[in-house]
Simulated scan of single mutants.
Amino acid sequence: MKTTIEKYNDSLKRINAAVALEKADRTPVVLMGDAFFANQLGVKLSEFCISSELSNQTQLKGVLSLGEVDGIEMPHMNVNVFPAAWLANIKIPGRDLKEGTLWQMDEKELMKVEDYDTIIEKGWNYFFVDYAINRLSTPENNLLEKLQSIGKFTPKAIKNYKDAGIVTFSPLGTGIPFESFTGGRSMVKFSRDLFKIPDKVQAAMDAAMPELLEGLRQQIRAVKPYGVWFNGMRGASEFMSRKIWERFVWPYTKKLAKTIIEEGAICYFHMDANWERDLEFFRSLPKGKCVFGTDHATDIYKIKEILGDHMCIMGDVPAAMLAIGTSDEVYDYSTKLIKDMGNGFILSQGCDIPPNAKLENVKAMVAAASGK
């Protein structure tokens, strides 16, 4: 029987081969499941979602019960990262929502037009600290203190997984100003900004990037992650014209990705929504240094057609199948993906394992990789 360090090294080798578009002994399995694991183990969502330590323990116990899993996307879960990413408050079960209800973003127009000028004149860091204290914090919940606590625990969370033989795939997260602004301004107001004051929006994005990039570099150097999660959601061009996308999304996406790669990490594009119109652009990034993960909205076969010889693909067992399908359906779908995707593929759920997924279905997905 292999030791946990031998298991870890085997999984790491398997994942490395997939990212490099090379043949592995089998297709690696990397999962993300937060509320799913809490529900399976009877842990209250109100406690799970605000405790990095509890979520780490819960997820790890859940992962180890599933079979031959190689990696976890994030080693712990804390909802306080979401306000920081989207500049919007979050509703938490047991506090703002009924116990057992999934946490929800409370998107409103918290960010004002004049905030663009603040970013332009004083920089991203000044803006964000003030915004976090005065618009995203309460006397009982200081967001900056929460973020510091989360960051401090992350290395321990990664070690806990490594000690159990599991690779942490993307413990750090990042995103472009577009995604943050659309959450802070609200989608409707931000969409109007892109047409009414496009030069000001772009100037704010340009002013934010140097400090965002430097902060990302420092995080990568401190944590030394395998990969960095790049959040892609409303930045998909299905929500806008090609002209808008090429001006406000792609240049910043490319800069962030190249920074991640320069610092020695893999850029993991966790891409919600449909990115089919945009796939060709990703070929301009270095070969074998990125992973494109789809939530099933982007056709994985289209990704294979356009990026299959350039970038590792990750996905894409759909949430609906995991929740209401049968274990045979999940196993057959996963097996077909493994066969059709070939080298350079990591088997995973589409986006996140849904809270109501059937345990036997998740086990069937994992089993498909090893044929057991």
Rank of each mutant, 00 (worst) to 15 (best):
Ser11Gln: 01
Ala17Glu: 05
Leu21Ala: 04
Val30Asp: 06
Gly33Pro: 05
Thr58Ala: 07
Leu60Asp: 01
Val63Cys: 02
Glu68Asn: 15
Val69Gly: 05
Asp70Met: 02
Gly71Leu: 05
Val79Gln: 00
Val79Cys: 03
Trp86Gln: 12
Ala88Glu: 13
Ala88Leu: 13
Asp96Phe: 11
Leu102Gly: 03
Gln104Pro: 09
Glu114Gly: 00
Ile119Leu: 05
Gly123Thr: 09
Tyr126His: 15
Phe128Val: 09
Phe128Arg: 01
Asn134Ala: 04
Arg135Leu: 06
Leu136Lys: 12
Asn141Thr: 14
Asn142Asp: 15
Leu143Asp: 01
Gln148Thr: 08
Asn160His: 07
Pro177His: 06
Thr182Pro: 06
Phe190Asp: 02
Lys196Glu: 13
Leu212His: 00
Leu212Ile: 15
Lys224Trp: 04
Trp229His: 15
Asn231Ala: 13
Arg242His: 10
Trp245Lys: 11
Phe248Arg: 00
Lys255Asp: 12
Leu256Glu: 14
Met271Ser: 13
Trp275Gln: 12
Glu280Pro: 00
Phe281Glu: 14
Ser284His: 13
Gly288Val: 09
Val291Gly: 02
Val291Gln: 05
Asp309Asn: 15
Ala323Thr: 15
Lys336His: 11
Asp340Pro: 11
Ile346Lys: 07
Asp352Lys: 10
Pro355Leu: 12
Asn356Ser: 11
Glu360Met: 08
Asn361Trp: 09
Asn361Glu: 06
Lys363Cys: 03
